[in-house]
Design a protein around this nucleic acid. Sequence first.
DNA 1: GTCTATATTGTGATAGAC
DNA 2: GTCTATCACAATATAGAC
Lengths: 182, 182
Amino acid sequence: MASARDRILDAFEELLITEGERAATLDAVAARAGVSKGGLIYHFPSKDQLAHGVCGRLTSLAADDAARMRAAAEGPARFYIRSSRYRGTPLDRAIVAVARLHQGGNTEAVATLRAVEAQWLAILAEALRDDDAAQAIKLMGDGLYYEALFRLPTGSPPLEPDAATDDHELERLFRVIDKIVG
Amino acid sequence: MASARDRILDAFEELLITEGERAATLDAVAARAGVSKGGLIYHFPSKDQLAHGVCGRLTSLAADDAARMRAAAEGPARFYIRSSRYRGTPLDRAIVAVARLHQGGNTEAVATLRAVEAQWLAILAEALRDDDAAQAIKLMGDGLYYEALFRLPTGSPPLEPDAATDDHELERLFRVIDKIVG
DNA sequence: GTCTATATTGTGATAGAC
DNA sequence: GTCTATCACAATATAGAC
């Protein structure tokens, strides 16, 4: 069984993603993690500490992703677009959770997101050797996340799309990308 | 002087945009609008009614924008990308305000945003006669809004960019678009 | 139409037992 | 490490005077 600390962070992320920032109260997090509020407070003395925890997760997961992106056989551009679709991976979840925290006015969340995004743009620009193409592809990836961000929350369906339809959408985006970088 | 009702909606929008959904309390809105909380409640009996007001503004402004987009001399694609940059227009402000409401768990905000975005995508697809290009350009516009959404809030600088630098960025995006639609 | 109370609930956090 | 109280405060909303 995962440590109480990890279960609490998981619960916080899940509530942020599926119920929104406002619903992710200490009471709700404790209940979902299966601990009392006092138990939660022992691990995270304040709500900012809880936010700090998910920001740390995002930073770590994004660093791993950046390494994979640089080394991707299909190239960073396709890798980036492919992974910009929300699939519920730990990285996807961390991004959306931190994005929600940002809405709640958390300042660390803004800085964390900005650092992660700057890293991705830098990798694209370096690989493509074309700042305009990199910027355009970065925007398309942002757009994909934007869509997910506004489809997920507030008790919506779990966003579990058909894989076949979905791969077809991806191929279509790849063809557009080829026009941009070609 | 604007009616009290309009001043209240303006104040609510402004707080949502610059301070975030959590800071846009009835107290804060009343103070910024220059009325008492009781006065506010007379015009908007609940906070949902307040949200309903800004959703209505967005729907109305988006309909006007859609008409201009269809008739734009430069074409809907360039018009859409140009107007996707946050410039603090009434439409820009309404979009960001409703996006913030969405984070707070307001269901009407989701439906309103979705309807508006579907309309824009339909106009692009119809004008370009290329669903893939329309989707890609729509994503780029979403990406531009996503950037604004995460640069604006929580007491950030007013986001008043240099017009010359900015037009240059736009020209570079236009060149990428030409590759996609050409 | 706008105001001043006030009621009620929810939220983050503390204190201290076990 | 985890729990059960409990506090202090902020938020929405109501009641009724002017």
